[in-house]
Amino acid sequence: MVRIQITVDGQRHEDEVEGRLLLVHYLRDRLGKVGTPVGCDTSNCGSCTVRMDGQSVKSCSVLAVQADGSEITTVEGLATGEWHPVQTAFKECHALQCGYCTPGMIMASIDLLEENPSPSEDEIRHGLEGNLCRCTGYQNIVKAVQYAAAQGGAQ
């Protein structure tokens, strides 16, 4: 067992974990952060994307021990009173249907906008290449990122 200390959505946690424990399972099973779902076992789908020290990562491909000392933000930690503009944009633009990919898609979109506050359509599509959606055909997701960018983006 390894002792780790992680801050998740602003709350500090200390735990003993097995080396093999995936960050996503730590979040879901230990901390009850079930807003972040698991969609695959090969790091392709991006449903489990969270932000780790300000960068998007696939939490199914990070060991909890690797996240020791890190700050994690999940989709549940985005809204501080008000929704994050990207959350609003996803609703406004109908960028989700079943919603399973949405937490990861939102986290990846925030990451994209922080790096590039006014991306072109092509840059948005490539910036989201690590996140699969089966419902929307991506068109309204692209639109949502454009909408969020126009509203001032990543904040």
Binding site: S43, G46, S56, V57, K58, S61, D111, G127, G130, N131
Partner: peptide, 9 residues
């Protein structure tokens, strides 16, 4: 290579 999240790690 891969995608932005993978490239972060």
């Amino acid at each position: 290579v891969a995608d932005p999240a993978v490239r972060h790690r």
